[in-house]
Design a protein around this nucleic acid. Structure first.
Lengths: 201, 201
DNA sequence: GGCGCTATCTACAGTATTGTCCATATCAAC
DNA sequence: GTTGATATGGACAATACTGTAGATAGCGCC
């Protein structure tokens, strides 16, 4: 047979992690099967093991890469929206899409439940808090208002994180259960308004 | 051997579901092992199968019971706090404890990710929305304010749900990542204040 | 006490999954 | 073209888990 396709270790590793990530998002690390991942890539599972080492190493690698992707994607989304100076709503919308469309919201939920996530993984919320708080202080000083508490900004970031995170994987169910199906985007706009009025106080 | 302990089918089923629920909360339905559950109960796994039928039936039963428990616990928590007329904060605190201490927040997260949850399961948010909206209307009419939109109340219930739900299993990580560890209770009080000022508008 | 029902257990079959061994194919270097 | 390094896969070992079969023991009922 001349149907063997020889890849570089980097190519193979990349393809394997890409395939494994799909399974991670769909069913968590518990449902990652070496044979399935290998089949998706188009290789045999001994070849997968040759490149990755073990199932545990695969899960570790795909989790680490997922954390990095989440952080990169979200930070990038925030950066892009922030430079446009268009308020909170676009930032919220972009971050939500980053969590939802890519499946990284689900992936993060799986990893947190599996205790595979550490506080320094995922999104480092403290940098977001610091950035947001600096912006608030600038606005307040310009308008001559008193400087807000740091903790207040942290809580605003947290309620946003919780809302977007939960909505990214439980949103459809929640909105339907609440009797307001397909109002996800309206909710996010409502959340942005809430934050703006709250943060101005 | 005279060490066999004969149970009624109801006792056995109850004990089995109790043990399985612990595994569900800890690792999701994927990590429910018949042998482990049986060992926890103090029976052999064929005995477990005799009572439950199959692994699939066990997962189905424990999921259904968990949904019912979640609903009962949360509804009960809301009822108890509501009758005391002490504002939103106690309700939020009680519901959060109902999700956190029992592990039902984690269980719900697992089941949602596993697509085992339907909108009519879990908490039926629409009844909460209806109840909350009726209360709001009463307050507004008494004070001569204009009646708030129903959707506004729904969104308030949803942001509360998202925040408490996410905090119940991802809270420790999130608060630490944000640089405000151990401020969960303060956050919930802040959330209650936010809702009260928001709902009065 | 004897009997029937069934909850219970031991042993085992069947299947799925991970990991190993070793031969083979592929490609770069010379 | 030859050679060396290694990516690849088929076959197999080892383990874990679900489900089945048949025997046994506990308990209510007569």
């Amino acid at each position: 047979m001349s149907t063997r396709k020889r890849r570089t270790p980097e190519e193979a590793r990349e393809a394997i992690l890409n395939a494994a990530e799909i399974h991670l998002i769909a069913g968590g690390s518990a449902r990652i099967r070496l044979q399935e991942v290998a089949r998706d890539v188009g290789i045999s599972h001994p070849t997968l093991l040759h490149h990755i080492g073990s199932r545990e190493a695969l899960i570790q690698a795909v989790a680490e890469r997922a954390f990095q992707s989440i952080q990169d994607t979200v930070v990038n989304a925030i950066m892009e929206s922030t430079t446009q100076q268009a308020g909170i709503a676009p930032i919220i919308e972009t971050v939500f899409q980053a969590l939802r469309e890519t499946g990284y919201g689900r992936a993060l939920a799986w990893l947190i439940l599996e205790n595979a996530a550490q506080p320094q993984d995922g999104l480092s919320l403290s940098t977001m808090v610091t950035t947001a708080h600096a912006a608030r202080i600038a606005v307040c000083e310009r308008d001559g208002q008193k400087v807000p508490e740091h903790r207040d900004t942290a809580f605003a970031v947290l309620i946003t994180t919780f809302s977007l995170f939960a909505q990214s994987f439980a949103g459809d169910m929640a909105f339907e259960s609440a009797g307001v199906p397909n109002e996800g985007k309206a909710f996010r706009n409502w959340l942005a308004d809430l934050l703006e009025t709250q943060l101005e106080r």
